[in-house]
Design a protein around this nucleic acid. Structure first.
Lengths: 117, 117
DNA sequence: ACAACATACAACCTATCGGTTGTACATTTA
DNA sequence: TAAATGTACAACCGATAGGTTGTATGTTGT
């Protein structure tokens, strides 16, 4: 993967690696919230929450929209999907291994025990 | 979500938030590798790589199997899938928002522009 | 038995993280 | 216009992350 892609993966996974940020993300995916509104939900300072929002924003997981003196944050589901597709690539790597092992073992009886997946 | 579930999410996302660890993960998903073999691939000390392997192991993303004096690491695709399913839950939250907005706007003409997904 | 190899882990260092308080600034409302 | 509100950001602090070197321990191979 490209260096910029790895940078993006770093930012995305890092942003998701904190439970407060994940909770904020759920809230802003469900609907728009001002930073102050979000801040009231957590037992920490406004500044701390504001930093978490910034981290999520830098990772592209949320965007902010100014409305008067409020800054309304909204979750970006496309960013979530891009993380999911990264994971799919990992799973593809794994399937490659299974395919190689299958080839190594040669043709066998079809598996009838798990036919209705 | 339960506290233990959040702990697990912390560990998983943290483990994935480092490009060296992600690269190790790809390698061990593709096939078994000893820690020393992995260490030769990176421009850092054996101890550093060993620590990365431990982080991945603690998160459940890989398992180790002793073979003589070697420790063979192998990727666990189920852990990858569990992360993917977490993300699906976030997407579900988002769809809930869209559904609420739809309801708010009331019934409309069906969208014929993207019928063939 | 002994040398070489593979691993584990402690101790240490620097940078970053997640939190704090304080201050500054723009916008709204009385 | 002045006070209240919402935000941004700098400076600081303790804990953790990611790296290092050094040492100890188990496993091969000669």
């Amino acid at each position: 993967m490209s260096d910029v892609g790895e940078d993006r993966a770093d930012a995305l996974f890092h942003a998701l690696a904190d439970r407060t940020r994940r909770d904020i993300l759920r809230r802003v995916l469900a609907g728009e919230h001002s930073v102050t509104t979000l801040a009231t939900k957590y037992d920490m300072s406004f500044a701390a929450v504001q930093k978490h929002v910034t981290v999520l924003q830098r990772a592209g997981l949320l965007t902010k929209r100014r409305s008067g003196r409020e800054q309304l944050a909204t979750g970006d589901v496309e960013a979530i999907r891009s993380v999911a597709s990264m994971l799919t690539e990992y799973e593809t790597v794994w399937r490659g291994r299974v395919a190689r092992i299958d080839q190594l073992l040669g043709p066998r009886q079809p598996d009838t025990t798990s036919e209705g997946d």
